[in-house]
Simulated assay, not measured.
Amino acid sequence: MNKVLLATRNRKKLVELQRILDGALGAHRIALLGLDDVEQYPELPETGLTFGENALIKAREGCRRTGLPTIADDSGLAVDALNGMPGVFSARWSGQHGDDRANFQLVLDQIADVPDEQRAASFVCTVALVLPEGKEHLVDGRQSGQVLRAPRGDGGFGYDPIFLGDGQDRTNAELTPAEKDAVSHRGKALREMAKLIAKVLPPTAA
Results as ranks from 00 to 15, higher is better:
residue 109 D to M: 06
residue 178 A to G: 02
residue 57 I to V: 15
residue 148 L to N: 04
residue 54 N to S: 07
residue 201 L to I: 10
residue 185 H to G: 02
residue 116 D to Y: 06
residue 29 R to G: 01
residue 144 S to L: 08
residue 189 A to D: 04
residue 140 D to A: 13
residue 184 S to C: 11
residue 98 G to Y: 06
residue 76 G to I: 09
residue 133 E to A: 04
residue 31 A to N: 10
residue 26 G to K: 06
residue 96 Q to K: 13
residue 42 P to Q: 06
residue 6 L to V: 09
residue 44 L to S: 15
residue 65 R to C: 05
residue 13 K to L: 01
residue 72 A to L: 04
residue 174 E to F: 08
residue 120 A to G: 13
residue 205 A to S: 13
residue 188 K to Y: 03
residue 183 V to Q: 06
residue 60 R to K: 14
residue 138 L to W: 03
residue 135 K to Q: 14
residue 157 F to P: 13
residue 175 L to K: 03
residue 3 K to W: 00
residue 55 A to V: 12
residue 30 I to K: 01
residue 194 A to Y: 09
residue 65 R to N: 02
residue 162 I to R: 07
residue 88 V to M: 07
residue 20 I to Y: 01
residue 53 E to L: 12
residue 130 V to I: 04
residue 186 R to H: 02
residue 66 T to L: 00
residue 11 R to V: 14
residue 108 L to R: 07
residue 195 K to M: 08
residue 176 T to W: 04
residue 178 A to P: 05
residue 202 P to H: 10
residue 16 E to Y: 03
residue 91 A to H: 01
residue 158 G to W: 06
residue 10 N to E: 05
residue 63 C to A: 14
residue 1 M to N: 02
residue 35 L to F: 11
residue 33 L to P: 05
residue 51 F to N: 05
residue 131 L to N: 00
residue 110 Q to L: 14
residue 174 E to Q: 15
residue 138 L to T: 04
residue 14 L to T: 08
residue 205 A to H: 08
residue 147 V to L: 12
residue 97 H to K: 13
residue 39 E to F: 02
residue 176 T to A: 11
residue 38 V to G: 01
residue 153 G to C: 12
residue 120 A to D: 10
residue 83 N to H: 15
